[in-house]
Design a protein around this nucleic acid. Structure first.
Lengths: 193, 193
DNA sequence: GCCATTCCTTCACTTAAGTGAACGGGGCGG
DNA sequence: CCGCCCCGTTCACTTAAGTGAAGGAATGGC
């Protein structure tokens, strides 16, 4: 299980055995069941997550309805905004599937950064890369229609369409479940000619 | 002019005089005219920007049409995704107004990080904070309608509505200029009762 | 295995955004 | 100063998303 985590880190730098041992000794892993909640709106948290197996999602409750805004699957990391801002969370985080996570809190990360200054560099690179990706994703969202977004998801993340319920996908695409149904029917009809 | 930059940095940490002098000696400032272009699609660049006066925007050209996705005004920083990824830029960056920027490239930043390791921490905090803000903004965009986005902009960034042309605002809101006109007319009509 | 609940789809209707065209105003350059 | 072009707005029409309702499939709990 640690191998996945190290593979992820290896994208940016190669760890020494000492560093790996330090991480292994931290006992970061946590197993969760489908539907389990990691964070609720209004709560304060210092925890960051790294998904080893499964899928988690962030969602808001707007006018009593769930609005899913992001999914995180294998090899993806999430530090919720509330951890950075020190404010109560605006959103929920819960498991789309049975999930295994690596969980670490701000205090632990500061401790590690102190012991191994290279981790500071690692975190900076990771944040910068995520920020760049987030910008591109946001730009792509703004410059495309729901149908284009769906088709693009079909190509870039076909797994999501399989493992995630339609109504969660719909809000992820910025539309209602009914519109997603219709949109898919439209695409299929067009494929037939 | 440097004061603005130091004030921005002070959000995260207080610099020593030595550190400030190092920054002052770098000659980072650059003046640009309205309409000037900083980066074109297809170009490679290592430059990051910090806006001291004025306003810059990122935009894509889709089917021959400009699609503005972001604005950066006083005290806002931008590291384009292409700088992080080392890939050619997908978008353009140009000045909405006469603008004064602080410009620094990756090499310079690495050099500074080497001389003053605290800058590494500064950069990490900055990236993390921007990432958190970007997430929140993206989530808000997904969970609201064009009209709600406009009204929210009216409250959070009223200056943008004044200084930015309508057709650029429109794509920023994810719609066409005609729709923005109509949307505004609709809001005004509703205000009258 | 059965029931209840949730989820997905479909339908009819409403509302809002996209499209193409036209007009008027303002700014910029000649 | 004049003319041209760009911009913002408006209009008529098309297309797609929102809404409310209903039916059927799938899921989970007992």
């Amino acid at each position: 299980m640690h191998d996945e985590l190290f593979k992820f880190i290896a994208r940016h730098m190669t760890l020494t055995e000492e560093e790996k041992d330090a991480i292994r000794s931290m006992d970061l892993f946590r197993s969760l069941k489908k539907g389990d909640t990691l964070l609720k709106a209004g709560e304060r948290s210092k925890d960051s997550y790294f998904v080893l197996r499964g899928c988690i999602r962030t969602y808001y409750i707007v006018d009593g309805e769930e609005r899913t805004t992001a999914f995180f699957t294998e090899m993806e990391a999430l530090t919720p905004p509330c951890v950075i801002n020190g404010t109560p969370s605006e959103h929920y985080i819960s498991c789309v599937e049975d999930t295994i996570l690596s969980v670490s809190d701000t205090d632990l990360e500061m401790e590690v950064n102190r012991r191994f200054p290279r981790f500071e560099v690692l975190c900076r690179m990771q944040s910068e890369e995520l920020l760049a990706r987030q910008r591109i994703a946001f730009d792509a969202f703004k410059t495309s229609s729901p149908e284009q977004r769906y088709i693009s998801l079909l190509h870039t993340r076909p797994d999501l369409l399989q493992r995630v319920p339609q109504h969660q996908l719909a809000s992820y695409l910025g539309i209602k479940p009914q519109s997603l149904s219709r949109l898919r029917a439209r695409i299929i009809a067009r494929e037939r000619g």
